[in-house]
Simulated scan of single mutants.
Amino acid sequence: MNAIEKRRAAQVLDHILLIAGALLMCLPVYALFAATTHVPGTPIMLRLDPGGALLENYGSFLTSSGGFSGDITVVAMIWNSFALGMAFAALKTAVSLLAAYALIYFRVRGASVIFAVLLLTLMLPLESRFLPTYEVVANLGLVNTRTALVLPLVASGLGTLFFRQFLMTVPDTMLESAKLDGAGAWKFFMDILLPLSLPTAAALFLVLFVNGWNQYLWPVIVTSEESAYTVVRDMQFFGRASLPGLMLAILAVLPPSILVILFQRQVIKGLFDGSH
Rank of each mutant, 00 (worst) to 15 (best):
N2S: 13
A3K: 14
K6R: 15
R8G: 02
Q11V: 11
L13F: 13
D14M: 15
I19H: 02
G21W: 10
L27R: 06
L27E: 00
V29N: 05
Y30R: 07
A31H: 05
L32I: 12
L32S: 07
F33K: 05
A34I: 10
A35L: 12
T37A: 12
P40A: 12
P43G: 11
M45T: 13
L46D: 10
R47P: 11
L48T: 14
P50G: 04
G51V: 04
A53C: 11
L54K: 04
L55P: 00
E56L: 13
N57R: 06
Y58Q: 02
F61A: 07
S64N: 10
G66T: 10
F68R: 15
S69M: 15
S69G: 13
D71I: 02
I72R: 07
V74F: 04
N80Y: 06
N80M: 06
N80T: 03
S81I: 11
S81C: 09
S81N: 07
F82P: 01
L84N: 04
L84S: 02
G85A: 09
M86I: 15
M86S: 11
F88L: 14
A90C: 05
A90T: 10
K92F: 05
S96M: 09
L97G: 00
L98R: 02
A99K: 01
A100P: 00
Y101T: 07
R107D: 06
V108E: 05
V108G: 02
S112F: 06
A116C: 12
V117C: 13
L118R: 03
L120Q: 07
L120A: 15
L122I: 14
E127F: 05
S128T: 09
E135C: 13
A138S: 11
N139H: 09
L140Y: 03
L140W: 04
V143T: 03
T145W: 01
T147C: 12
A148Y: 01
A148R: 03
P152S: 13
S156R: 06
S156P: 01
T160Y: 01
F163C: 03
L167C: 04
T169N: 11
T169Q: 15
V170T: 09
V170S: 08
P171S: 12
T173N: 08
L175N: 10
A178M: 09
K179R: 15
L180M: 14
L180F: 11
G182F: 06
A183K: 13
W186Q: 09
K187Y: 14
M190F: 12
M190K: 13
I192T: 10
P195I: 04
S197V: 06
T200P: 00
A203M: 03
A203T: 03
L204Q: 03
L204I: 06
F205G: 02
F205P: 01
V210R: 08
G212R: 00
G212I: 04
G212L: 03
W213R: 02
I221A: 02
T223F: 01
S227I: 13
Y229R: 12
T230W: 07
T230E: 05
T230F: 08
V232C: 00
M235K: 08
F237M: 13
G239M: 08
R240D: 04
P244H: 08
L246R: 05
L251F: 08
P256W: 08
S257W: 10
I261P: 01
F263N: 10
Q264R: 15
Q264H: 14
Q264P: 02
Q266C: 01
I268K: 13
K269H: 11
L271S: 06
G274E: 05
H276P: 04
